[in-house]
Computed example of a mutant assay.
Amino acid sequence: SQVYLQSSTNFEVQYNDHMPFVAGLQWKDASRNGLKKWEGGLNLDTPWLYLYAAHKLHQPQNSAYLLTTELTTGKALSIKNLVVELLYKDQGNEKEGKVHIYTPTTTYLQASTFNRLGRNVLHSYGEMISLWNQLVKNEIHLENNERTKLLCFKIKSTKQEFNFTASYQNLPTPKKTNLSVKIVWRHYKSLPVTLQLEGQIEELKKEKMLYQKRGTLHFRHPFKVPFLQSFLLQETFTVDKKQKHYFMETKLLINGVEETVQTLILGYQPENPYICAGLTHPYNHKLFPKDVEICILT
């Protein structure tokens, strides 16, 4: 035979031989073998509102919990057989949750989420549909390694999709650091809209007499503006101990066609130090020469 723990409480308020307020609470614990199984009910009757709520908390297995609430109201607010179901599973590195809100004739909300946590990796997937919107899916992928960081986020409906991706990578040989951010918006009636930013720092040469490093930044967007659609900025820094000078070159490419180059040289020979600066550009030469170089010798 099974032994249950149960309790029942009732509360009544009488006024002028009437019973305007009645409340009742029932509760039962039927847990077995370490698995929870609780059931309860709440009923409330007033001149303005009638409410009945039934609650169940079950533990189908050690790693899962199911909570069910059924709600019925009357008088000022009428709700018939509204059911709220919550499911949660925890299996170490994998966690899952579900929400379902419905009546026998209508589904108001149905949502679920699934998360997997690995070594330095998190993957999350979810979807939701309700009475007010169509199915929406979302996905998150996160990596956090010593040399690689990655974040991907995606949300998708039947007609639209949004993607966000950010990544960081640090490579030891050759020494290089990459950074990238990309946003893509898709609509079923039009072409994808892409916004992208990429950066890189790279060690080109590391020798006894020569050291060279380059940084690059590239940005492009799809918006119709009259001046800047994309740009590529690149800087190269060189230390030449044989020639005894520092050299920096800056290149700027706008909209893929307009290239500007600026150079700066600092010579540190003890007997003949000097500074040289140069500029080459594609714009109107009447305002400034297209190609100019200035040197200062000491």
Rank of each mutant, 00 (worst) to 15 (best):
C152T: 05
C152A: 10
C152Y: 13
F153D: 01
F153T: 08
F153V: 09
F153C: 04
K154Q: 06
I155N: 03
K156Y: 02
S157D: 08
S157R: 06
S157P: 00
S157H: 03
S157E: 02
T158G: 04
T158L: 08
K159Q: 13
Q160M: 12
Q160S: 10
Q160H: 12
E161G: 09
F162M: 10
N163Q: 11
F164Q: 02
F164S: 11
T165R: 14
T165C: 11
A166S: 14
A166G: 14
S167E: 12
S167C: 11
S167R: 14
Y168Q: 07
Q169K: 15
Q169P: 01
L171Q: 07
L171A: 07
P174E: 07
P174T: 02
P174K: 12
K175Q: 07
K175E: 04
K175F: 05
K175C: 03
K176N: 08
N178R: 11
N178T: 13
N178M: 10
N178W: 02
L179V: 14
L179N: 10
L179D: 03
S180P: 09
V181S: 09
K182S: 15
K182Q: 15
K182R: 15
V184N: 12
V184A: 09
V184P: 04
W185T: 06
H187Q: 10
H187T: 03
Y188S: 08
Y188P: 01
Y188K: 13
S190Y: 10
L191A: 10
P192C: 01
V193F: 14
V193N: 13
V193A: 14
V193K: 14
V193E: 14
T194P: 14
T194G: 12
L195C: 15
L195V: 15
Q196W: 07
L197Y: 08
E198Y: 08
G199E: 04
G199I: 00
G199P: 02
Q200M: 08
I201S: 09
E203F: 05
L204C: 00
K206N: 13
K206F: 02
E207F: 04
E207Q: 12
E207S: 07
K208W: 06
M209A: 07
M209G: 02
L210A: 01
L210V: 00
Q212E: 08
K213G: 00
K213H: 05
K213V: 03
R214D: 00
R214Y: 00
T216F: 00
H218P: 00
F219N: 04
F219Q: 04
F219T: 07
R220D: 04
R220F: 11
H221K: 05
H221V: 02
P222K: 02
P222G: 01
F223W: 15
K224G: 13
V225H: 15
V225D: 14
